[in-house]
Amino acid sequence: MSDVMTAPLAGDDAGMAAGDLLVMLRHGPHGSSWLREGLEAAMVAAAFGREVGLLFTGDGVMALLEGQQVGPLGQKGSDNLLAALEMYDVERCYVDAAALRARGLTAQDVTLLPVTLLEHDEVVALTTAFSRVLSF
């Protein structure tokens, strides 16, 4: 499943390029403001010139499905924020493959952003490649 979108991993210890800040997004786009406030933290860090990575895990993978718009509950959707990521130079987006599988999703469902699918040991390597991790 992780064939199509997995970027080549070069070098030692699963070879993730080093970065300043990894932002983990563990909540879906609706029901709480975690996802939105996490994305905002990532974008501010990128705007400050930091090398930022995003890891979608847990229910956070739901943000990558199309159509997360403003809903009848009045919460802003996450689509507009995700669309702005590239403008902020947040280009390193990763998805926890196990979290996708657990929700009956495949790489084909993730069309909103170019992402790299990671298996568990690669997720662990990712967290060590970044000097700091913020979890939302």
Partner: peptide
């Protein structure tokens, strides 16, 4: 601003 969170982090 949130930039202070980034600074505090790094």
């Amino acid at each position: 601003g949130l930039g202070q969170l980034v600074e505090a982090t790094l």
